[in-house]
Computed example of a mutant assay.
Amino acid sequence: MDRVVVITGATGGVGRATARRFAEKGDRVALLARGEAGLAAAAEDVREAGGTPLPIPVDVADAEAVDKAATAVETAFGPIDVWVNDAFSSVFAPVDEISAEEYRRVTEVTYLGYVHGTLAALKRMKPRDRGTIVQVGSALAHRGIPLQSAYCAAKHAIKGFTESLRCELMHDHSNVHVTLVHLPAVNTPQFDWLLSRLPLPAQPVPPIYQPEVAAEAIVHAAAHPRRREYWVGGSTVGTIIGEKLAGGLLDRYLARTGYNAQQVDRTPPRDRPNLWEPADRQADHGAHGAFDSEAKPRSRQWWLNSRRNALLAGAAATTTALLLRSHRKGKGDHGDDRAT
């Protein structure tokens, strides 16, 4: 396709898998992240997949640095077609075991990082009246869970910010589009990277999906941005609908199960937390975390979701054909009756 794509948080997990997926389509991919080793490895991934990489070291909490990165992308590649916000950091701990400084840092990276990326994209896309912004969200943007208050709050904020922006773009009759992709639990290095004060090492709440499932959804959303939200994985659908229908029951259920579901007796991670410094400054960690043995490589829900228009069209065509066949048969039967 040869689009110009920018991805924040591009050196690990979902961002890394998404960079590869865009590269497979022949796109030019700007990789924004902090870790030098991770950036170098991600750039090599993009080259091997058939894309053209542009690694740019940047902390998305720094608005000026993000804007300068956007200028560097357009200088090297030309106008940005797609901007994907994915960078984040967080803390696993009860609310009162997270300091005010840590909440501030998580907010600056995980929420304001999306704001900074969005502003940099809009500054360039709106005058041209074209472009797509994809916000990588989470089921936890709809439903908070214990031990992840900082992350859940940031994802809720991203959802509200994006909804406001969408209304403004519609008001302006703009051809710039923004969409949200809400993800389930994903097997990424974050469970070794994030600062944790839990008794046991952190794990994603099962069912767990491989980051390539998320990457496929993000690339699809970039090509079909008029849909306001995409839900990926049956667990995401269940969480969002469950919160809408029975939030109080979910409170009690998560109070009982949420602590144990996010911890596992495994070898403790050796990586330093990435809240203040990149975990991949010296070593690359790739897209996958420590849960390959149990992570799902595909989602039936997403397969159906991404093809729903074609499936609905097919169902409509089949229904129409059956009705016509029934109608013709009925006319034939009626003709026989009259002849009799």
Rank of each mutant, 00 (worst) to 15 (best):
L322K: 13
D96L: 14
A69Y: 05
Q210T: 12
V186R: 00
D192Q: 13
A23G: 06
A121C: 11
D62W: 11
T52Y: 01
H327P: 00
M170Y: 08
I240M: 15
S149V: 14
L31Q: 06
S306I: 08
E48R: 15
T75L: 13
R3G: 08
Q190G: 01
P184W: 02
A154W: 01
D59Q: 05
V66K: 06
A17H: 04
L195V: 05
F291K: 05
T8V: 02
V106P: 01
V58E: 11
E108P: 03
R338Y: 13
A17K: 07
A185S: 15
K25A: 15
A153Q: 07
N260D: 15
L198R: 09
Y230A: 04
I56N: 04
S235G: 08
D2M: 07
Y230G: 01
T340N: 13
F77W: 05
G131N: 06
G117F: 07
A76C: 09
T118H: 09
A317I: 14
Y259D: 10
V46A: 05
R300Y: 12
V178Y: 00
R266L: 12
T188A: 09
A215M: 11
L180S: 04
R143E: 09
V115R: 05
H156T: 09
P55V: 13
D172H: 12
N305K: 10
A121I: 09
G286M: 11
N187D: 15
P225I: 08
A185H: 00
E64C: 01
E277N: 12
S99R: 12
R308I: 15
E97R: 14
Y253Q: 14
R252I: 03
Y151L: 12
T110P: 02
H177Q: 14
D27H: 14
K329T: 08
P199R: 10
A185W: 00
Y111G: 01
L249P: 00
L54E: 03
I98K: 03
D336Q: 13
G26I: 10
G13S: 06
W193M: 07
T236Q: 07
V176N: 03
K329C: 03
I98H: 02
G286V: 11
F22K: 05
H142I: 04
A255P: 00
R281Y: 09
A93T: 05
G234F: 04
G50E: 13
A283G: 00
L140G: 00
H173T: 05
G258P: 08
A17M: 13
G330Q: 14
I240G: 02
W193I: 01
H220A: 10
H224V: 11
G242A: 14
N175T: 01
V14R: 00
A141C: 07
M125R: 05
F161N: 08
T75C: 02
D86I: 01
F22E: 05
A222L: 05
G286I: 09
G26R: 11
A100Y: 02
V58R: 02
S299L: 12
Y259H: 14
P184L: 06
P297K: 06
E229G: 00
